[in-house]
């Protein structure tokens, strides 16, 4: 097996609690199925600036203006339930990179 560096994902939403918890749980569940181990930092959008440095990429349910040079994935489909599989696939691929 190829050893991969453990990725850190920054999951951000308006509260840093509500929708980001739903997204975090779904990412962890999807990653577990693929036997991937990840770090997740949950935060408010206004705190992204402070945490972006430690993250490999950003997943957010809200509008993101500046992703501080990191790739960002919009996870709104994980909240609405429409297009959920597609987004999870994108996130898993990003973890495997």
């Amino acid at each position: 097996m190829v050893s991969m560096r453990k990725k850190t994902i920054l999951v951000a939403c308006g509260t840093g609690i509500a929708t980001s918890t739903v997204v975090t749980e779904k990412i962890l569940e999807a990653a577990k199925k693929e036997n991937l181990d990840v770090n997740i930092i949950q935060c408010k959008v206004s705190e992204i600036k402070s945490y972006a440095e430690d993250a490999d990429f950003i997943v957010t349910t809200t509008i993101l203006k500046d992703s501080f040079g990191k790739k960002s994935i919009n996870a709104l489909p994980l909240i609405t339930g429409i297009g959920e599989g597609q987004v999870l696939k994108e996130i898993i691929e990003e973890i495997k990179k």
Binding site: C13, G14, T19, V45, T60, T61, T62, G81
Partner: peptide, 13 residues
């Protein structure tokens, strides 16, 4: 409409 938490819009500058 799917009714969601307004948290999803809070990130707007």
């Amino acid at each position: 409409y799917i009714g969601l938490d307004s948290a999803i819009a809070v990130g707007h500058p």
